[in-house]
Design a protein around this nucleic acid. Structure first.
Lengths: 237, 237
DNA sequence: GCTCGTTCTTGTCACTATGACTATATAAGG
DNA sequence: CCTTATATAGTCATAGTGACAAGAACGAGC
């Protein structure tokens, strides 16, 4: 007992078990009718050739969010101004990495779909992948579970928050915003009711006064994101 | 870049920064009109004599939840059958522990209020503390932030889930369940409307057929927890 | 130029959930 | 017996909801 208490206070650097700490990012975007995640191809063993979430070691003087933010900018070129980044959960099963004990702090990023496939420097090995096409065991390590947690978090978040707008561009139509919900939730929503609820929730969106140019149908008014962060009342799936 | 890619794959144990990984537990209980958290007195520097969240190092072959579960049983004597335990977030500011780099995976536990102050072996230094009496900077390290996150999570959880019953005993009255909500949310709820909504949400509670013996007023029917885990529709704060 | 199909947008309507409130039941205590 | 406290049932106006209808404004094709 006394021995354990000393270990908890841990003045002796050799007395605590050695861990590696990494961040793994679930970077999601919505390109209707697909939800896409940014993945990288592993070049080395284990899981060489398999898809994996982008990630890396946390630096000795780096906070957790700095490590995640760095990786996000590295892969997407996006800063926190235009993307949403939140901590998801930590994964640390002893056998999750066969080489050593690794704790991964996973993060969820929501970004608007870029025109170029992948921005950034070491982009050759990275790609946006439809989550629907991913097989159950196609990802390296326990990244299946991390991705699943990220998708579920995103689906829940857009119920109670205005974060769905981060999947849209600066200016968007109601149809585009609705498509984000329909794509993430996997089913259609009534356009009229969706319109009413979004506009009734103050500060969700603001009208720009413009109309969108599109291919079919009546031109839609465009909106930009409003100041509100929470949705009262919440939208229902 | 190439150098960093090698570090990410990390075959060399000396190539990644040394981290210590701990778990800290926010163990909450509700004893109306107080929300209480289980805290321990620190005996050693830094923060000697200050309150801290119970926690400890994650063992080399221990999963994160095993470490949290061990600590919960150690401090409360409760297993996962009668308590709720969920991962909260990870905290890893480089300066959060002045001695070394420590990543703490924080967990939230919800337990029914025990009769004895603190169960378990090394209970002499532990106590249930009213969160209202805690000053802003009274806790060691960044445990203020962790506790705040735990309380906020608990307040949110009972909106959408049936977890409020884990703060009650096996058999409880509507008034006791309502007191949990009122204590955590900090304001009164209409008894009649609360009754209606809880009973309308299928599987939240089940009638026992008994009535409670109490001091004042009409005797209340007692209930036990039902099979449902989510609340549709959600209760509103 | 006209019709058709598509999408956006406004409006209607029945139904449900809600908060506020009233009323009654059943206990304890003076 | 009367007051106080709590539990429980019921009422009612209002707000939010889903389902649906209808009109507006475009492009495509004949």
């Amino acid at each position: 007992m006394v021995k354990r208490a000393q270990r908890i206070d841990g003045y002796d650097p050799a007395s605590f078990p050695p861990f590696a700490v990494t961040t793994d990012l679930v970077i999601l975007t919505v390109r209707p009718p697909q939800v896409q995640v940014l993945l990288v191809r592993r070049e080395q063993q284990p899981f060489a050739g398999a898809w994996a979430l982008p990630g890396g070691f946390v630096g000795p003087d780096q906070s957790l969010i700095e490590a995640a933010q760095f990786k996000l900018e590295d892969k997407t070129g996006l800063s926190l101004d235009s993307a949403h980044l939140e901590q998801l959960a930590s994964f640390g099963e002893p056998a999750r990495d066969p080489r050593m004990r690794v704790i991964s702090v996973a993060w969820l990023a929501m970004v608007a779909h870029p025109d170029e496939p992948v921005a950034g420097s070491d982009a050759a090995d990275a790609a946006w992948v439809d989550i629907a096409t991913l097989a159950d065991d196609e990802l390296a390590f326990d990244h299946d579970a991390i991705l699943g947690a990220g998708i579920e978090r995103a689906r829940n978040r857009i119920e109670y928050t205005t974060l769905a707008v981060t999947f849209c561009g600066d200016e968007f139509t109601m149809g585009e915003l609705r498509a984000v919900y329909e794509t993430l939730w996997g089913h259609a929503l009534d356009p009229a009711n969706f319109n009413r609820k979004v506009l009734a929730s103050g500060g969700f969106v603001e009208p720009t006064g413009n109309v969108a140019s599109q291919t079919k149908g009546r031109p839609a008014k465009t909106y930009r994101r409003g100041p509100a962060e929470t949705l009262v009342p919440a939208l229902q799936r």
